[in-house]
Amino acid sequence: MSSLLRYGRYVRFPLICCAFGLAAVFASHGGLSPAGLQATWITLVLLALEISLSFDNAVVNARVLEQLTPGQQRFFLSWGLVIPVFGVRFLGPLLLVSLAGGIGLGEALDAALHHPEHYHELLELAEPRILAFGGMFLLMVFLRYFLDEAKTLHWVGVLEQRLSRAGRVPSLEVALALLILMVVAWALPATLRSDVLFAGLIGLVLQILSTSLADYFGGEEAAVGRLAAQSGFASLVYLELLDASFSLDGTIGAFAITTDLGLILTGLGLGALFIRSLTVMLSREKALDHLIYLEHGAHYAIGALGLLMLTGVVIGRWGWHVPEWLSGLIGVVLLLLALGDSLRHQRRQA
């Protein structure tokens, strides 16, 4: 009972916000009318979509968040929520829609607010670039974690030991990521090839840049911790960059569920609040020190999501789409398997 109370305090605030948010949607869309019930249900679906797609993000961010002070953690939980909800999930696609559609930012904003169907069409036009950017960033996160010769803790020993030994080859993760990007671009029409290559390279360069900066300070996690000790803004930028790559696929999928921008921001925003609370819980309770394979499962889920996003770039030319439920399901299954093995390891140690 005491454990439930201890862990429950982390989700108390998100639950209250969800209750108020769903009540506001219910009341503003007609209450018990069919429109009100449908809007409330759609918001719940979007909330579940965000949580399932971003759960592995919470595990990875928790390891970085352990380096921060409680005050900086609260800053990440509160003000850090503004950027993923309004920046990544609203302004980010807006900017990409503007660039891909060859229209002004004001016109894209007008379409988002007053012509959601047209905005959805523009978003679909920008989708290959968005997926290429996010897919390459996440793929680099996955490759960098496993292609590490200093890594000694292995979950899937046969595979991870080989990957760790392969990490002795300098910049192998960059070469593999570029090879995959070239294969994806080769499968696309010539008119789209250069845009996808450019977007993918931006994702790759941003990951290399953050890694190089971390190495300069003596290790990624230690670097983030020392920077955050001077300014919470430094850690916020690092964490939000990873969050951006996770959320891009979910944002596109949300418009496939509904074109109501208010419902999208409400559902995804409430889901992001849950994920942030979970991140803080994992960090403060030092859960990753006991659940030793959970971080492995999260990175496998990251790699799967990155590959699915790049696959979506290729199959999108035929009008196909990787369903968001598949991405979420793969991530949840991998994390549950890692959690189960971590608990079994704990029992063996005991």
Rank of each mutant, 00 (worst) to 15 (best):
Q230H: 14
Q230D: 09
Q230M: 10
G232W: 13
G232R: 04
F233D: 09
S235R: 01
S235L: 07
S235K: 00
S235C: 07
V237Y: 01
Y238P: 00
Y238R: 14
L239G: 08
L239A: 12
E240D: 11
L242P: 01
L242K: 01
D243G: 14
A244R: 03
A244F: 09
S245F: 14
F246I: 09
S247P: 03
S247R: 09
D249T: 12
D249N: 11
D249I: 11
G250K: 04
T251L: 08
T251E: 00
T251A: 14
I252H: 00
I252Y: 06
G253D: 04
A254R: 03
A254N: 10
A254W: 01
F255N: 08
F255D: 04
F255I: 09
A256M: 07
A256Q: 13
A256L: 09
A256R: 15
I257E: 08
I257D: 01
I257M: 05
I257Y: 11
T258C: 07
T258F: 09
D260K: 07
D260A: 11
L261E: 08
L261D: 02
L261C: 00
G262Q: 11
G262F: 09
L263M: 03
I264P: 01
I264N: 06
I264D: 04
I264F: 03
L265E: 07
L265I: 13
G267W: 02
G267H: 05
L268N: 11
L268T: 12
G269T: 08
L270D: 06
G271H: 01
A272F: 07
L273C: 05
F274N: 10
F274L: 14
I275W: 06
I275A: 05
R276T: 12
S277E: 08
S277C: 14
S277I: 06
S277T: 03
L278F: 15
T279Q: 13
V280Y: 02
V280C: 01
V280A: 11
V280P: 00
V280L: 07
V280R: 11
M281W: 13
M281F: 13
M281V: 08
M281A: 15
L282E: 13
L282I: 15
S283V: 05
S283I: 07
S283F: 05
R284N: 11
